[in-house]
Write a protein that binds this DNA or RNA. Sequence first.
DNA 1: GTTACAAATGACCCATGGTCATTAAGAAGA
DNA 2: TCTTCTTAATGACCATGGGTCATTTGTAAC
Lengths: 218, 218
Amino acid sequence: MDAIQKRRAEEKEQRREAIIDAAEQVFADTGFDRATIDEVARQARVSRALVYLYFKNRDELQLAVGVRALRLLREHFLAAVAAEDSGYDKVAACGHTYLRFAAEHPTYFAALSHFESRPATEALTPTESEMFAAGRAVHEVMIAALETGIADGSLRSDIDDLWLTSLSLWAFTHGLIQLGRTKARFMSELDVATDTFFDYAIDMAMRGLQPPKPAPGA
Amino acid sequence: MDAIQKRRAEEKEQRREAIIDAAEQVFADTGFDRATIDEVARQARVSRALVYLYFKNRDELQLAVGVRALRLLREHFLAAVAAEDSGYDKVAACGHTYLRFAAEHPTYFAALSHFESRPATEALTPTESEMFAAGRAVHEVMIAALETGIADGSLRSDIDDLWLTSLSLWAFTHGLIQLGRTKARFMSELDVATDTFFDYAIDMAMRGLQPPKPAPGA
DNA sequence: GTTACAAATGACCCATGGTCATTAAGAAGA
DNA sequence: TCTTCTTAATGACCATGGGTCATTTGTAAC
């Protein structure tokens, strides 16, 4: 690949990123589901057909946003983990971080949610693989935190499968946010603030990871 | 309301139910999202416009299926709870029941999932209210089980908010199923059967409800 | 038989996802 | 500089499917 081809490839990548930028913008403005490709194209100041040259279909564009979401989330997780000492606190911090992340980046959360409720496909598209890889990278941060906790005694020593634990925590937190988001009215009937609910739930989940004896972390 | 009006109302209700029947069928055949109103109408042997006479829009039809799902789920919960002795076992049984329910009635689970990820609306439509009421009824079963557990000592005595606990468990289990459904491939990479994952996760969640000291239920 | 009203329908509109033949742009070779 | 080849980019087009509406059909009341 000579210099020119390389430049072409770079430009192409930039265009792709620019379209994802536009998509994010439109998703944020119009809503993840209601947004139209046409609007995205307009925002990117590009013809609609071009979008389809870079993305097979709408789903793949949404997935591309999801990849960004996971990568950014990983950054946040890394920061959260670094800020705590005990493994217990690191894990709990990840939970809270995801909650905050979802609140701060609703579009990103919508993208993740979309991925989470999308029917599994047969063959993996490249973007789909990226998504899985990015997801794995997030879980790796969690897993490291779990390992720390087991080593320092702030978490149960008999947590035998770190991957399953990480997946479970993810499922839990994700389900939580989703429910908090759609059942706000229902909860206000119960006179509960969403944040109270979140804290309560996270605490409950963390208890499942505490050592049988007494105290949590710190 | 005289007899004739009453009969009319009954017939109308029957038509409505018939359309929901058709919708369930089509959703099961074609997939909850891909299914079209046209197909539902055809299945119900009725014109497409008539569907819109009984349901404001597609969403409301989907919600109507969701109501059925929740009502059936409640039945299953009641049976599950009745079959166990300790509160701990009752609660755990609800978890497993939801998992089995989702496996046996994928369309119903899809309907619930739809409701769970649907943006909250301003004013509640009648169907939406029905849905909330049905949801509440399900949680009431759970809450009763939690109360039993606290009374018989199989669950932590300091579980202070039963509603939040029930909501948390719901969010958890729901998130679990969703993840198990869409990440089957991912999990097979890890060499984990979905059932193993489910059991593991439920066990983890239940630990968060156990009394600090030693033993679980039975 | 006529009127009044509710149930039901067919035809229509239009938003939107996706495709395709064609054009514009620019590098390579004469 | 003109021609050619490749690839980025586009406008016009199609199909599907949700939702609406004027009109018809059926039936009870008078």
